[in-house]
Nucleic acid binder design. Structure first.
Lengths: 184, 184, 184, 184
DNA sequence: AATGAATGAGACTTCATTCAT
DNA sequence: TATGAATGAAGTCTCATTCAT
């Protein structure tokens, strides 16, 4: 019965979507399973048919989001320019597209009690991103690429934080300015 | 009876110190009042003699920390160099000195909810800092000081995040590199 | 699934019944939620599935009781005699049938605080009853019906209090005597 | 040192007065010892120097009030008229003078968990009052004095309840009407 | 006499999770 | 698949009371 499979996926997608939204706006701890099931229009029991625990739901959110982001970074660039420019533009694009996930991530990454495991996996992603940045800096012939990579990564991350934090943050302008610094 | 006052302040200081440490490491929501009182070596009831609620304890932590930080920024600089250099060095110094508070802040600022009030007050501090940065950029004769201020603020914030996030983060080196970019 | 509805109603009815009994005998404040759940043979958590708070449970008790009483007063009289006689007899009948509710009401009505809202609604009922009494007095051609209504209402209320207060209170005899005073 | 004695009595009087006011307005259970000490302008410890417990404070309130009321009933009448008239007028007078105590009493007498002992003592007073009423009825030559006493007592009690319950209750008028019924 | 620090039990309430249907 | 009844631990907070000073 493919119908069952369909419904199953529909429900799971709905749950992931709702949970991400709530985790992003209220925080992981402050969001209750009841709240999620309610907003998703389904019962507590059904939620537990799909996810063994609240943690597992969080993990699934991370899995999906990280996968999407990774794919987006790896695949042929959707934005033009040099390597660095592409990287920054791509990051900004993803920030806008997946604002809720970034909010969740930024809100959870420092106090990772529940999510130590997830964070370990994230670390890999982080290292990968920093490495990409370094590669691009090397290509651009910038000196001290290791340290520069750390700085650029931090700058991008800070920009992201402020975008998530403040309304009407002119992220495109700030990004452009940042890109300019690495031109020539 | 100054003895009461003494004991009172001792208890309050201990509570604020312990709560800050726990909030920083486990997060505000995940830290229980019982946990705080226990680590502070006192009973639940005593905590509530001094703080009407968990929120109020958090507020007191913020009040004290923000006050310290503000004072530290305003007073005669303890680190040398140009305006921008001073600002960055001072920030790094404070980051190291008040690591727990920054952890708490970075872990709480995105999903406010409980702390919308506090965040509103923080906003003022934030605006003040961004303005200081802009002033320094103007003095240094840097074009687009508004946008540059946003970028520099973001870079510093991102650097701080990574310092809080990763062990052995070479913040002094990254800071030096950042300072260099605004020299000459 | 009517099964859920059934169970739900069963639990709610049980809770309302037990809570009324306990509130009546020990008072609202002195009765704990744990006590209620325990006597009702269910867990604390289940109670909170049905009632958001202790107050709401009290409100439900009031809602149901007031509704019953109102219905009983409005519907065709189950006791004979003149208007006044009917009113008094009906009151006595209800007193016996809903002794617990009257106990709760008499024990709570003076120090409202929690139940100011409920009391405001009760006031309407009270006014309605006093008005009914006045109508009956007018029909019976008794002078000063306004004041007489207040007095008769007070007498009935006092009789009720003493019935609730003292064991073996001869309420039927006292009621008969009271009725006699308004005959002829 | 009579000064100590003086201060002691002053403090005790203040506590009794404040506690009575708070018990009357919020109820016994809902009033905290802290609240009482605070409103009386003294420390928790001092309160416990004078009263071993919250119960004992309540007992003292009852002792004093009952004594006052008893004295007032027993002593030469301050209001004129026949026995019944005197009794009713005197009751109304006391109601006005000791409104808080009556509120407390009416709010506590039905659910007497804490105060079973006190209520037993009150019962004596009650019996005494009912007996006085009966004596007066006998003197007035009214038939069925036993039952009439119960009814009149209930009427007076109900009047009192309504006076305590409703603002601007015309108790004097209602009392006059009640008195009239027993004239001739 | 007088203070208020200190305690711990217990109050109300929420929550993640399990289970019978 | 789907429901929501049911649980019990744990959370925040209040309270009467004791005690050192």
């Amino acid at each position: 019965m493919p119908r069952f499979q369909e419904k199953r996926e529909l429900s799971i997608n709905k749950l992931v979507e709702v949970a991400l939204r709530l985790f992003a706006s209220k925080g992981y701890e402050a969001t209750s399973i009841r709240n999620i099931a309610g907003e998703a229009g389904m019962s507590l029991g059904l939620l537990y048919n799909y996810f063994k625990s609240k943690d597992e739901l969080l993990e699934e959110i991370f899995r999906r989001s990280v996968e999407d982001i990774h794919a987006s970074f790896v695949q042929s660039p959707e934005v033009g320019g040099s390597g660095i420019e592409q990287h920054i533009r791509q990051t900004v694009k993803l920030l806008k597209e997946k604002k809720d996930f970034w909010k969740l991530l930024h809100g959870i990454r420092i106090q990772s009690e529940v999510v130590r495991q997830l964070m370990a996996e994230m670390q890999e992603q982080t290292a990968y991103i920093e490495d990409r940045i370094r590669q691009n800096l090397i290509v651009a012939g910038i000196p001290f690429p290791d340290l520069e990579a750390k700085l650029l990564f931090a700058s991008i991350d800070g920009m992201a934080s402020h975008f998530l934090l403040y309304d009407n943050y002119p992220i495109d302008d700030v990004a452009s300015l940042l890109i300019m610094k690495y031109k020539k």
